[in-house]
Design a protein around this nucleic acid. Sequence first.
DNA 1: AAGTGGTCTAGACCACGTC
DNA 2: ACGTGGTCTAGACCACTTT
Lengths: 231, 231
Amino acid sequence: MSAARITWQSLHAEVSRRISNGIWKPGDLIPGEVELAAEFGCARATVNRALRQLAEEGFLDRRRKAGTRVALHPVRKATLDISITRLEVEQKGLVYSHEILSRKRKAPPAPIRKILGAAVGNPLFVTTLHQAGTNPFMYETRWINTDVVPSVLKADLTLISANEWLVENALFTTGEIKFSAANATESEAKILDTELGAAIFVVDRITWNGSDVVTIVRLAYAPGYEMSTKI
Amino acid sequence: MSAARITWQSLHAEVSRRISNGIWKPGDLIPGEVELAAEFGCARATVNRALRQLAEEGFLDRRRKAGTRVALHPVRKATLDISITRLEVEQKGLVYSHEILSRKRKAPPAPIRKILGAAVGNPLFVTTLHQAGTNPFMYETRWINTDVVPSVLKADLTLISANEWLVENALFTTGEIKFSAANATESEAKILDTELGAAIFVVDRITWNGSDVVTIVRLAYAPGYEMSTKI
DNA sequence: AAGTGGTCTAGACCACGTC
DNA sequence: ACGTGGTCTAGACCACTTT
């Protein structure tokens, strides 16, 4: 007979257990990779893989020479999948549809202009109502930098929403997302079929390609919307 | 002279470049690990490290036998750091303080009872107001399963908030987070020093240790709060 | 200066999923 | 059945940081 082969997952689980059982407490220095490799009878690379994973998950702090410590404040990271609205609606088992409410090039208001940069020509402004079944789901107001994505001017956004079109046709390198709550304005209330002042979940997103702004968008979700995730 | 040593980071950057330049388009099958290793003159493990990273980031879909493809819908993942409220406030450069508004064991209402499970004894109910400077920042209402964390009954929560105490003393294995928007109720408005119906950013969180519920909490942020992240 | 994690290599076997 | 990614090994050198 022989010992079972050690996998990095099993090592990850064991270290995880030692932390949650309090064998290794927050702030504690845990044994080095060589030592653990000897204890578990595996290669150092395997130990490294397991500990690196735990560090990425926020359970360990690792520093060369200083060694590996159990994280003082186990910062839990919640990851949200930013997917296409159509898929999000369909995953709820509802029928998705969308309607372009407006679509025109125009001079943006000052705050938008500031983000876009002065050198950018007039962007395309598109507003879309996304629907789940026959109910309003989300109201999208979007500015698109046509200097970066000129082909959007020729796209038929009634077939594919701007949301989806951009995901597939305009790659971006970085982005910023803000989540907040807002009271529905009169026009938002009308579009989302709710009452003035209703609490609206809002997502503001800016995406860049290199140093150029690609698009600036505000998503206003109909009351009752929840964004959820596991951690 | 000799070629520079290939690192997984440089390979990651190169593949990333080929995707954003459209050399490899969404849905395309890219060369296998062995082939790429030959092209770049490095070990297969190095290629694997780079491609695995890209897959984790959502740019590639990898499946045994089927090979590696450029993701059809580059699902961008936004990661939110769920940190301690005190640290969040202090990072804004403000002075943190908190006040325990109530603290007692009591029978929970039906929805909470349902999540806790019928077998659990009466939980501890704690409400806390977190402040930034002299302004209300967030109102926390929390149910704590004392069967799992009996020591919380002896904790002095006026020194360390329940939020922080639990992070350091009650490790959990899994959790669920929901983000939503709500109109302030009369009592919430009073506590957060705002008006009835103001839009409140709400976080609902349930955490488990194995199959036991550890705590159920609702965080109601004062108007103006934004949760932001980069992607 | 020295110790610890970070990474690369070359080779091997395995697991999964497509064919 | 077989091809592709997933992982392990043993050894080596390197980079960062603390002492």
